[in-house]
């Protein structure tokens, strides 16, 4: 079982078995979306921001 710290609030997050790189998870403490960048070593970043745009 892997652990990682939230880059926003430093909470310790336990990654569930079977998670994949690129997956978006939610920090259980601060609720921010996090993207799993890599699994070996475990690294998470703040997930891509959701912007709004008009068109098409």
């Amino acid at each position: 079982m892997s652990h990682v710290n939230c880059p926003e609030c430093a909470a310790e997050i336990v990654l569930e078995a079977g998670v994949e790189a690129g997956e978006i998870i939610v920090c259980p403490d601060c609720g921010v979306d996090l993207e799993i960048i890599s699994l070996d070593p475990v690294e998470v970043n703040l997930a891509p921001i959701e912007e709004e745009d008009w068109g098409e």
């Binding site: 994949e20 790189a21 690129g22 997956e23 993207e35 960048i37 891509p48 921001i49 959701e50 912007e51 709004e52 745009d53 008009w54 068109g55 098409e56």
Partner: peptide, 24 residues
């Protein structure tokens, strides 16, 4: 989505998501 995020990062980008107010 995961493949796109990796593809954008692979080209040196910081990926983002967008929601559009139009239709396609």
């Amino acid at each position: 989505v995961k493949a796109f995020l990796a593809g954008i990062r692979g080209e040196g980008g910081q990926p983002g998501f967008v929601l559009k107010t139009g239709t396609s």
